[in-house]
Design a protein around this nucleic acid. Structure first.
Length: 954
RNA sequence: GGGCGGUUAGCUCAGCGGUUAGAGCAUCCGGUUUACACCCGGAAGGUCCAGUGUUCAAAUCACUGACCGCCCACCA
């Protein structure tokens, strides 16, 4: 075991080494985990061509903490990783790349373009995986999946065909959201609304007389924010009960610029209060108008092209870009004197989630999925708690969305994705689905194998496959079971479905989480695969929605805006463990995270603290080894397992206290993790390690560890190693690298540890300890997580040590205030009121003197405080330290007065409460009692302080 | 237009019905105690956004308002 350890923890080398080892040894295969209850979780698949951003890191840290924790508790644990082909996002990236070379995808044709995307995927698709490995994600990489791989394509086919057969997937001509830039339909969810200040124009539509001539004097004034769509108007509408306009209904207006007569219709949709109460109706360019058009049988005139230009139907405006056309049209209307007014108008503009272009409502033929029938059982499982949603308010949001669910447009006019397995008959337009869900591999990629060759309706043989692909989220919706082998009845599916938990950001609750629930419940209702019981069909039993990482302004982190943070770079700078700790410690459920440099620095300092605690142990060990006591004797796994060891007499208290703390900290951490309170788990461990273990336990024990008396030294060493080992295990889920590294420096099964062997091999400092044989995977990640232990729990020890800590702190406080030379030891006079206090003080005199910097403690019986001393009184003890001529009497008086004031207020308020009959009768007895006790204590402190003040002032 | 979340120490955030409201960082004072200056010891710092109510008891629950942020929504 090399004892030469760097003073400051340098994470990079350590982390890379372990990340590589964990991956290469397949340490996190489910098969390497225990045989306890299973715990399974599917990774929200990142975009295959993306790279890790801080949001991923937060998500992966939280998942990894829970996965490691469950694994260490002996559960059969699977974290299944994989990537999403992210249709539109990936295609967008590749198109942008091609554009640099002046190439459009249409120039290449579908097959060649797909080939290029695959190539791009091959080249850059591994980045995320490498990064995840580097960041310590304990996934089972042997089960990695990709949404576009053959097995998952098959799952998609299977699901599609089944929904299609059941009539849940249909095709039709409806108004959809169209992105003119991506040139595809997108779903409602992919439209992001932004408030913008635009203009609203009031435009005069002249009435048409019986000859079809526009009236020069009579107009109906319509309001519009989108003048360019007026070219496609096929009516104007008023409210049927609107007296102002009743007489016009059934007449016609002359559509300006187009000189087309259009009818004036009455429809209750019109809001009489808004604008003039007259609405232009453009069925081809507005969803409401589309509905009205259907009701009144109006023609639909599409005046735009798919790429956002004006179409032939726009007459002389044909060919103009849509917003250029708007300007031209307004100008022309002004010239004709038909613009009555223009006003500023704030309205929400829909933009494409992916490319930010303004979305155009457009009529087109698309594929849809009926959602209402799927939403019902989803609501049921959420409402009944079969899927527990955390935080709870997200449950309401989810249920609300399910209540108002609308059909889902699942087809995309893209080339990168799962192609719709429907063939169209050229002769009779019949739609023929693939025969079954089998796939064949062509050119390395999967496609439907069961291709129809003859139209079952007309016998025609000219069948062409639908050119659309499916929305990426369709395959994502199958993720929890498609990745486990569905539609086959596999061992993994049986063992790990339903998964235990889904952790995702709340930003994709509707996109993904809700759809998995709906699709899972529906598709798993297969007699071969489930009992039919809905609780066995849900995709996950718990749904935890994590926070989002935001910028100081509250916006989402964004690479394009330059507000993104590269986690890999931060990792280099501070260490992965530090970054993980920082993220976890800020991850209180339900609140978003704003990164702060301070918190990373403090996390890095924490890692360093852990490192240095280990350095202390190993450096000091040499001394005891010099006396012929081996590390194996002190810290072998079987030795650690039997801790705590009794330490004779006086030295025992700190050990009893430490193990008692370990037990309660274990309980607290487990409880916190159980409730996804990562921040609480972190804080608990932090304080345990830094304050309890380092500041008190190590400091307390230093003489014991150096003792010549083997009967003291050996058990003290054994205990501290055992406690340190337990602390490492407690810390491991959040800080996997440093804990793995240090744990391997302790003796492990097989007589040695890998790090020792490896370090030996590469180190000139090797001193020849240990051998290199390591049977089986050996990692702290596969060890037991510390559990609460009733044998360790020792409230008396905790209370006694707390008393001593208070005394020591009080002395330090006095010393600091009196500005006593830190090296100078002074005598103190102490009165202890606690029951066994005196005894406790006497039997721990050495650490008290040492840690408080005292030369002696004189235990007295509460005589009046001698003059010429500084006094500190609490309910449990009075402390007096004599001063020479150094003390600032004025400051002492001021301090005493302030304290008296505070206590008086406190006592007064307590007395008032206790005098209140309502309080005494209604509050629980224990509350009243503790109030009573506190009052007495405070009262005692107060009177002591008062006499102290009198003394000082005399 | 609906819904959700936030407002607590100089900063970033915990606490969410019961003793004297906490942490990290920053600040101030003091320290080369050979594990750690990414450290050690000590201190100071808060009408818990405002108001009203519920309660024996409110930072914590309810209502109202202000400001900040997010999500959803077809009013031209």
């Amino acid at each position: 075991m090399p004892r030469e350890i760097p003073k400051a923890y340098e994470p990079n080398e350590v982390e890379q080494r372990w990340a590589k080892a964990w991956y290469e040894e397949k340490l996190f295969r489910a098969e390497n985990s225990g045989y306890g209850p299973r715990f399974s979780i599917a990774l929200p698949p990142p975009n295959v061509t993306g790279s890790i951003h801080i949001g991923h890191m937060l998500e992966h840290t939280q998942i990894d903490m829970l996965v490691r924790w469950h694994r260490m508790r002996g559960q059969r644990t699977l974290w299944l990783p994989g990537m999403d082909h992210a249709g539109i996002a990936t295609q967008f990236v590749v198109e942008r790349m091609l554009a640099k070379g002046g190439i459009k995808r249409q120039d290449l044709g579908r097959e060649e373009f797909e080939r290029r995307v695959w190539k791009w995927k091959q080249e850059s698709g591994g980045v995320i995986k490498e990064q995840m490995i580097r960041l310590g994600a304990s996934c089972d990489w042997t089960r990695e999946r990709f949404t576009l791989e053959p097995a998952l394509y098959r799952a998609v086919l299977h699901a599609f065909l089944r929904f299609y057969r059941e009539g849940l997937i249909y095709r039709g001509r409806y108004m959809v959201n169209w992105c003119p830039r991506c040139q595809t339909a997108i779903s409602d969810l992919e439209v992001v609304h932004h408030e913008r200040t635009g203009e609203i124009w009031n435009i005069r539509y002249p009435l048409a007389d019986s000859d079809g001539k526009p009236s020069a004097t009579e107009f109906l004034v319509v309001a519009t924010t989108r003048p360019e769509t007026m070219l496609g108007d096929t009516a104007v509408a008023v409210h049927p009960d609107d007296d102002r306009y009743r007489r016009f209904v059934g007449k016609k207006v002359m559509l300006p610029l187009m000189n087309r007569e259009i009818p004036i219709i009455a429809d209750a949709y019109v809001d009489r209060e808004f604008g003039t109460g007259v609405v232009k109706i453009t069925p081809a360019h507005d969803p409401n108008d589309f509905e009205i058009g259907k009701r009144h049988n109006l023609p639909e005139i599409d005046v735009m092209t798919p790429d956002g230009h004006m179409s032939e139907a726009a007459g002389k405006y044909a060919g103009l870009e849509r917003f250029a056309a708007r300007g031209r049209i307004v100008a022309d209307l002004k010239e004709l004197g038909l613009v009555e007014s223009v006003k500023e108008h704030i309205h929400a503009v829909g933009t494409c989630d992916r490319c930010k272009a303004i979305v155009e409502p457009r009529i087109s033929t698309q594929w849809f999925m009926k959602m209402a029938p799927l939403a019902e059982p989803a609501k049921q499982v959420v409402r009944e708690g079969l899927i527990e949603v955390v935080p709870d308010n997200q449950r309401t949001i989810l249920l609300n969305w399910l209540d108002n669910i609308r059909d889902w447009c699942i087809s995309r006019q893209l080339w990168w994705g799962h192609r719709i397995p429907i063939w169209h008959c050229a002769d009779c337009k019949e739609m023929v689905p693939a025969g079954d869900s089998r796939v064949e591999i062509v050119d390395g990629h999967a496609r439907a194998a069961s291709v129809p060759t003859q139209c079952p309706k007309c016998g025609g043989s000219k069948l062409t496959q639908d050119s659309d692909v499916l929305d990426t989220w369709f395959s994502s919706g199958l993720w929890p079971f498609s990745t486990l082998g569905w539609p086959d009845d596999t061992k993994d599916l049986r063992e790990f479905y339903p998964t235990s938990l889904l952790i995702s950001g709340y930003d994709i609750l509707f996109f993904w989480d809700a759809r998995m629930i709906m699709m899972g419940i529906h598709l798993m209702a297969d007699p071969n695969l489930s009992s039919g019981d809905i609780s066995t069909r849900i995709p996950f039993r718990q749904l935890y929605l994590h926070s989002l990482v935001r910028t100081a302004e509250g916006a989402k982190m964004s690479k394009t805006k330059g507000t993104g943070v590269d986690p890999l770079q931060m990792t280099q700078q501070y260490g992965t463990d530090a970054l993980r700790y920082m993220l976890a410690s800020m991850a209180a459920p339900g609140t978003d995270i704003i990164l702060s440099e301070d918190r990373v620095l403090s996390a890095r300092a924490f890692a360093n603290k852990i490192w240095n605690a280990a350095r202390f142990l190993f450096l000091n060990l040499e001394k005891i080894e010099g006396r012929g006591i081996s590390l194996e004797e002190l810290a072998a796994p079987e030795v650690r397992a039997r801790a705590p060891y009794p330490v004779p007499g006086e030295a025992a208290l700190a050990h009893r206290w430490m193990f008692s703390r370990l037990s309660s900290v274990s309980a607290q951490v487990s409880e916190a993790l159980e409730g996804f309170r990562f921040h609480e788990a972190c804080q608990t461990i932090y304080h345990f390690f830094w304050d309890d273990f380092c500041d008190w336990y190590i400091e307390w024990l230093k003489p014991q560890l150096a003792a010549e008396n083997r009967d003291v030294a050996i058990p003290a060493w054994r205990n501290i190693f055992a406690a340190f080992d337990a602390a490492l295990r407690l810390l491991h889920p959040v800080m996997p690298f440093i804990t793995e590294e240090l744990w391997h420096r302790l003796p492990q099964r097989g007589g040695a540890s890998r790090v020792a062997a490896e370090a030996l091999a590469s180190s000139q400092l090797a001193d020849g300890v240990g051998d290199t044989a390591t049977p089986g995977p050996l990692s702290i990640a596969l060890e037991d997580y510390p559990q609460p232990n009733s044998d360790w729990s020792d409230p008396a020890a905790e209370s006694e040590l707390a008393l001593l800590q208070e005394i020591i702190v009080a002395v330090r406080n006095v010393r600091a205030e009196m500005k006593i030379d830190p090296k100078k030891k002074v005598p103190a006079d102490l009165t202890v009121h606690a029951l066994t206090g005196e005894e406790v003080v006497n039997s721990n005199l050495e650490p008290i003197l040492r840690l408080a910097g005292l030369s002696s403690v004189n235990i007295s019986t509460g005589l009046p405080a001698p003059t010429g001393a500084v006094v500190r009184s609490t309910a449990r003890f009075d402390l007096r330290i004599a001063y020479g001529d150094v003390v600032d009497k004025g400051a002492e008086i001021a301090k005493a007065k302030k304290e008296i004031e505070r206590l008086e207020k406190d006592v007064a308020s307590k007395e008032a409460r206790l005098a209140d009959e309502a309080f005494r009768s209604k509050a629980p007895a224990e509350v009243v009692q503790s109030m009573e006790r506190a009052r007495v204590e405070r009262q005692g402190e107060l009177s002591k302080l008062r006499s102290r003040l009198a003394q000082l002032s005399s």
